[in-house]
Design a protein around this nucleic acid. Structure first.
Lengths: 213, 213
DNA sequence: TATCATTCAGAACAGATGTTCGCTACCATT
DNA sequence: AATGGTAGCGAACATCTGTTCTGAATGATA
């Protein structure tokens, strides 16, 4: 393993935050809890990796003997984004809570270049389950980058929940006089029309990532 | 006890140094060794005092959970000086070693305002024993502030060791053609003359402190 | 499928570390 | 001399904390 994994980035970020807040370094168990890691051995394992990669220095047998190396800053060009759950046609869309913002609280994260995320807050990701989003040009296994919002401008691609149909979908929204047009990204497919009352916008899609092998 | 004792200043200084060097706070035992304190309980005792006085914050039951408060800097106007021994007419003058420079290594220290010490390094103190220095206007129990040096300029008050007489004395030195004049601070008293070979200058007197109750 | 490296889980261990307690020493005051 | 507060000593204790070990998933590779 030559590159720093997302878990290691979480740990690194946690140490940095802990240091800023407490003014003393965290213990393994502090990191364990803070990053929701199951065992101290896993923390140790990853800290060793981080040390090997030169991000931190450790003082053996000394409590809280973790020192951040000056160059341990995660490149600003990348930012970890929490993957807060799955999105599928038939199941409710996971909604981020203030807690899930925290990268260290997420079970899974993905590193996104700043070019995609910008500087915005409230970025999270959903993993697409099933092929129901095909008409949005989104396939099974894709990662959808979301920006938290309750509203949307015309033309925005959003994650929408259709209350009556109990269906999640990714579409472009166009607000028309008394109804909302949900337009598939695939221009050859037909839009659907829903009443504003039936629509719940769960977030704005700001990107899609497809990892093929 | 409303004021911070010299031992507490030592501890404070040690914590600051340790933090600067290691980037993580010291344990009680680190402080114990670093300040040559006999028991961790004494460290704990003084840390509690320091916390009460607002110099530090402590996180109970957390290893190295010591945080310096921002205002915990020892006032620059004061600097602790090690008292490395006694000076008496008939006994050799204690000579400072590189080890004794360290305030935290000294058995006793005294806080001196910077007006007296200046910014110089190699400052130490001697406690005067006996009344043999009366002619230097120095009494029993006075503290003599010394600056480490082997040489002296004309007119400097020095701690001198007369080899032949096996005598320690505090006098002003004036180098004359082939001899050295040792002039008492008290102008009414007569100088003595010694050969340069018979003279060992142990340090320059830069101040005298007399504590009268 | 078989194999190997990576990552993790869980537990146990040993050492590091903060806390506490009874006792002593010193010093100023009564 | 008696007293009380401050400071220190030394040891014991409980917890915190880094380390280690065995075994199990997991994924990539052949």
């Amino acid at each position: 393993m030559k590159t720093v994994s997302t878990k290691q980035q979480q740990i690194l970020g946690f140490i940095r935050r802990f240091l800023a807040e407490q003014d003393y370094p965290p213990s393994l168990r502090d990191i364990q809890e803070g990053c929701h890691i199951s065992s101290t051995s896993v923390v140790d394992y990853n800290l060793k990796a981080l040390e090997r990669l030169g991000f931190i220095r450790r003082h053996p047998e000394i409590s809280r003997g973790i020192v951040l190396n000056s160059d341990s800053t995660i490149p600003l060009s990348m930012t970890p984004v929490p993957i807060i759950g799955m999105i599928a046609a038939g199941s409710p869309i996971p909604v981020p809570t203030p807690d899930t913002w925290d990268v260290s609280a997420a079970a899974e994260t993905i590193n996104i270049s700043r070019e995609l995320t910008g500087d915005a807050e409230g970025i999270y990701a959903l993993k697409v389950k099933g092929e129901s989003m095909i008409d949005a040009l989104i396939n099974d296994g894709d990662i959808v980058l979301m920006q938290y919002t309750n509203t949307a401008d015309n033309g925005d691609m959003v994650a929408a929940w259709l209350k009556a149909e109990k269906e999640a979908t990714l579409k472009k929204v166009y607000i028309e006089s008394d109804r909302v047009r949900l337009q598939p990204a695939n221009r050859h497919m037909q839009p659907i029309y829903v009443s504003p009352d039936n629509l719940e916008i769960q977030g704005k899609v700001i990107g899609v990532i497809r990892k093929l092998s």
